[in-house]
């Protein structure tokens, strides 16, 4: 059990509840006051997003109370939903079918089981090494050579992003940080809050001040104003939340910066994939947000780096990496 209701956890709950209530209230007032059609559409989308946030927070809180197993299960389920969206986009051929079945129903559970069992060594190589070797091998058994390299690469890329990268988030619960025992749940919360707040702040700053587009061909909504404002705001919140982590203020700032930059990279990469496949969103699972992958893109990229930074710098004895 990683879940312990300490006074810090209560403060976090109060903060999240208060923040969401404020967002709901602001959305309600603004949707009554805006006049333009464009403004109305923006407010409708913003309010749909807030509503979905309430549901996501509720699901997240529930899985937290079930401990490490509950969180592993939740993120494993998210991985499956993310992979489902991804596979729907890459137009697999019938010859890929059984390889995909392995990806969904063997590699996904095994990856999360390895983390749950605390087998760090196996969890970090299962997909980069063994799935990498397995996928093309299994594909050869289907006797279809057309587009072979493309198909193998696409399937392996999906496994890396949807399963491997996302699994680093609940893997935070397995870290044994001296002086921070039984409190890892707050580390996972820290990652999720900073990454998601960075997205929210970038969206809001971009809507309010956005003028100069960063990558118009990839993501027309991303602007320099939104990016700088969002990263700065999320880093400020992350620094202010240092008390829930094993970090000092300065370390919390550095970690927040790493999370937000990687999160931005994730958002941009996933947007490029969506443009490549000619869709706007990965799906319509979450009202106002699009698909699961649209919501998880920042976590996909930030979770592995945050995990390894924390492990290298805060879990002692230091692994051989530095020697």
């Amino acid at each position: 059990m990683n879940f312990k209701v300490d006074h810090q956890m209560l403060w976090i709950a109060v903060g999240v509840f208060g923040g969401l209530s404020l967002a709901s209230l602001t959305g309600f007032v603004l949707s009554r006051t805006v006049k333009s059609d464009g403004g109305k559409a923006t407010m409708a989308n913003m309010n749909a997003r807030t509503r979905s946030w309430w549901i996501m927070v509720a699901i997240f809180a529930l899985s937290f109370m079930l401990g490490t197993g509950g969180s592993m299960f939740l993120f494993g389920f998210i991985s499956l939903l993310a992979l489902r969206e991804y596979v729907s986009l890459i137009s697999p051929v019938p010859a890929d079918h059984r390889t995909l079945f392995w990806s969904f129903f063997v590699f996904t559970p095994v990856q999360y089981l390895f983390w749950y069992a605390g087998w760090y060594g196996l969890a970090v190589i299962l997909i980069p090494v063994y799935a990498f070797l397995f996928v093309p091998t299994r594909l050869t058994l289907a006797h279809e050579t057309a587009g072979f390299l493309d198909r193998a690469a696409r399937i392996h890329w999906g496994l890396m992003v949807c399963i491997y990268c996302i699994s680093y988030a609940p893997a935070l619960l397995t870290l044994q940080i001296p002086g921070y025992e039984k409190q890892d749940a707050k580390l996972l919360l820290f990652l999720v809050m900073v990454a998601q707040l960075s997205d929210v702040f970038q969206y809001v700053w971009g809507k309010v001040l956005g003028r100069h587009k960063i990558a118009p061909t990839i993501s027309p909504n991303k602007t320099w104003e939104g990016f700088v404002g969002g990263v700065a705001s999320a880093c400020a919140v992350g620094t202010a939340l240092y008390w829930m982590t094993p970090f000092t203020r300065l370390e919390a700032l550095g970690m927040s910066f790493a999370i937000t930059i990687m999160g931005f990279a994730g958002g941009l990469t996933m947007s490029a994939i969506k443009r490549d496949r000619g869709v706007k969103d990965f799906g319509a699972t979450i009202e106002g947000h699009g698909g699961i992958l649209d919501r998880m893109d920042s976590i996909c990229f930030s979770a592995p780096l945050f995990f390894h930074l924390t492990r290298w710098l805060f879990v002692s004895p230091h692994p051989k990496f530095f020697h």
């Binding site: 489902r84 969206e85 596979v87 079945f101 969904f104």
Partner: peptide, 12 residues
């Protein structure tokens, strides 16, 4: 569930 397969793969 393509023709001839008996194990399903989730697709939207």
């Amino acid at each position: 569930l393509p023709k001839g397969e008996f194990l399903p793969v989730p697709v939207i």
